[in-house]
């Protein structure tokens, strides 16, 4: 048995992963979430702002991490719009523009009273990696000649007097890597003391904790935090509990549980093999 397992073709592991993730998706299994303090902190950062506050929504991700980050971007957008904040969208990723469009569609479809240019605006993609942050922090007009739709910034109430982002009430960032959350903390939040929360991939989340709470108000790390955020949101605003669209993260926690158990199982089995083989001594494989 041990010999069979230790020589197992890795494709069997892949197959197990397909089953572990696929089966819960097909069965639609769902679990309750108990939001952690960290997620509540992020929620409060948006919730406690007075209505009509200005929020820079920097969506720095692309399709390769949409599974983790789309639920966060959607939840942030819904929450900000629900609270009546003024939203400025932008991205540092070339493929981030279509991601912004998804959030714009949420605003258009679910908040028909929101007027483009008065309540929300899309500044679009800003090339230059961290240089783009430096530019919008110091002189936004140098970075954006117009908004993403080609409108003059002076023609819209929201951007008319906007010279830089230093006076934003909150910086909300969804980040898939560099440039992203880290650079926003370094170039914007820290030197100009702008309140900031971020939603990031699991890979990146642990590296941002040292910034909390002085330089960063909170982090949503990976899909679990997205699900918890959706949960807090649907308790505060019951209409989201009814909306299937507002529960992408919650839905994805089913496959997550089974796949995590599989991972743990694999590591345990791997170690059992290791200890058995070690107890047999060198060259002891029979």
């Amino acid at each position: 048995m041990i010999d069979v397992l230790s020589n197992l073709d890795r494709r069997w592991v892949f197959a197990a992963m397909f089953v572990a993730v696929g089966w819960p998706i097909l069965s639609g299994v769902r679990f309750k979430e108990e939001p952690s303090e960290g997620v509540r902190r992020v929620f409060r950062a948006i919730e406690d702002l007075p209505e009509g506050s200005t929020v820079l929504m920097a969506l720095d991700y692309d399709p390769s991490s949409q599974g983790e980050l789309q639920p966060m971007a959607s939840a942030f957008t819904r929450h900000a719009a629900e609270r009546g904040h003024k939203i400025y969208f932008m991205t540092l990723w070339p493929a981030g523009s279509p991601m912004i469009e998804r959030s714009l569609r949420i605003v258009e479809q679910e908040y028909p009273d929101y007027v483009y240019g008065e309540d929300y605006v899309n500044l679009g993609y800003a090339p230059g990696l961290e240089g783009a942050i430096k530019a919008v922090v110091d002189d936004l007009r140098g970075q954006f000649a117009t908004d993403a739709r080609g409108n003059s910034l002076d023609s819209m109430p929201l951007t008319e007097g906007l010279r830089n982002i230093q006076n934003m009430d909150l910086l909300v960032n969804v980040s898939a890597g560099d440039p992203g959350a880290k650079q926003w903390v370094q170039y914007a939040a820290t030197p100009h003391d702008i309140a900031m929360v971020t939603g990031t991939t699991g890979v990146q989340a642990p590296s941002l904790y040292p910034y909390i709470p002085e330089q960063l108000d909170g982090v949503l790390g990976a899909i679990k935090a997205a699900a918890e955020y959706e949960q807090v949101l649907s308790v505060a605003y019951p209409k989201f509990a009814e909306s299937v669209k507002a529960q992408e993260g919650l839905r994805r926690m089913g496959p997550q549980l089974v796949a995590h158990l599989l991972m743990i199982g694999l590591i345990v089995v791997g170690n059992v093999i290791y200890f058995v083989e070690r107890s047999r001594g060198p060259g002891g494989r029979r």
Partner: peptide, 9 residues
Amino acid sequence: VMGRITLFA
């Protein structure tokens, strides 16, 4: 691991 699994799902 958590992140990778989500993308897969």
